[in-house]
Design a protein around this nucleic acid. Structure first.
Lengths: 237, 237
DNA sequence: CTGATGACCAAATTAGCATTCTGGTCATCA
DNA sequence: TGATGACCAGAATGCTAATTTGGTCATCAG
């Protein structure tokens, strides 16, 4: 349904989000004021508060909107090629897509310079990486179809999986500047680690992949909808 | 040689380090003054500067001394049981021993509250985690004796290995308070990840282990000496 | 003579206060 | 009826004076 919004309430919300995102990346969370956002979006300050209850909620929406973009990219890949649903391929793409989007990269790499105290704000909970990294349902489907090592339960991944993935994001700001390793190389290393640590030695059967893919895609579509709602803010109804 | 020092220059240096460590953990890097350290160590302020050139060097020595303790613990384990030299067992113990020592834990978990800007000080280079996590020589010995997957070269681990290990340390402050997982459990997960990612499926032969152990132990003994020197500060000779 | 000391100094940090700025509200208006 | 910007309280900032602290070195005890 929704699609890109060119007119009406939604379009205005998008313009505000565009302005907020632009200023966020140029000036950093701390320096961006609601006044400035309103000015850049061509609306009055009060109008911003017709869409989001607080400044924090607004920036939350900025992140959520970029998260939706990322999930859509992941979904597109999964629809085109069911092998993309395996854990290591999913997280590989997750890593690449997140790192390519400046707001998400700032969030995942914990870029204190541009995000400041937004990083530790409590209402960020819903955007929490855990949710994206390891939806229990997704992992359940993988297990059900033999796409994870025998004996693994979703809970078993609660600690290891996010910790490993977190490491690959969080190391970024600490990497020496002249690193030859490109984004795709890093993603390969992450994928390799996850495959060897959590997946079975034998490659999955095509049949297993096909049925699992349908379920996985549905799960991520639901996740995309949740994030879309989070980005929308206060709606008129 | 050296051993515990009960009298003389060394003993005084130790007393100063004890005081510095104690205050560091109680008050945090920022609040600890040289005056206070001297007072607690029962010496004059000038005396502190007979042992270390700057305040930073002194705290560096505090860290180095704890690093020596840790390496000694690792070495003791390796001497008692050669299987402890394998990558996953080494890093498992490394993780546990580092996390149990408050100063090292603060360094590795990047505890900004107690370490403040000490974390990003440039002269911390020698204590850099990379040095400890992945001595090239150590990895070379592992490869030479078939203790790592075929085809791996030391450089191949330059990115992945520190990144994975870093993740397990750096995630600590972000873990929800009521986590049931104990230190040993976390260490198990780390070890499992490293074993599956970097080590061969077949367990190593006892002969390989024995000869490799001798070399590995020598490498870590040298590392221990380096850190001991770093902890010593200015010596009279 | 030797090695330890603490008074001393410049530079950095903090405290206190006046001023400005900004998130959020709401009476007013198109 | 939906949008706006003047308005307000509290937070952030700038500024200056006063204090603290890393590091030195003339002095002194043994």
């Amino acid at each position: 349904m929704a699609g890109p919004r060119h007119t009406g309430q939604g379009a205005r919300a998008d313009r505000i989000l565009d302005a907020a995102k632009d200023l966020l990346l140029r000036w950093g969370y701390r320096r961006v004021t609601i006044d400035e956002i309103a000015k850049h979006a061509g609306v009055g300050k009060g109008t911003v508060y017709l869409h989001w209850r607080t400044r924090e909620q607004l920036f939350l929406a900025v992140g959520a909107r970029e998260a939706v973009e990322m999930i859509e990219a992941v979904l597109a890949a999964m629809r085109a090629d069911p092998t993309q649903i395996t854990l290591h391929r999913y997280m590989r793409r997750f890593f690449v897509e997140a790192m390519r989007r400046p707001v998400l990269r700032a969030i995942f790499t914990r870029d204190d310079e541009t995000l400041g105290k937004f990083l530790s704000s409590p209402s960020r909970r819903p955007l929490e990486s855990a949710k994206l990294v390891a939806s229990r349902e997704y992992l359940g489907v993988l297990i059900e179809h033999g796409l994870l090592r025998a004996g693994l339960r979703p809970e078993d991944l609660d600690y290891s999986l996010p910790t490993i993935v977190f490491g690959f994001f969080a190391i970024e700001p600490l990497l020496p500047p002249g690193t030859a390793l490109g984004l795709e190389d890093k993603a390969d290393h992450l994928a390799d680690t996850l495959r060897r640590t959590f997946e079975p030695a034998a490659p999955p059967s095509t049949a297993d992949l096909a049925t699992a893919a349908a379920k996985v895609i549905e799960i991520f579509e639901r996740l995309a909808r949740e994030y879309r709602d989070a980005a929308r803010g206060i709606t008129g109804e």
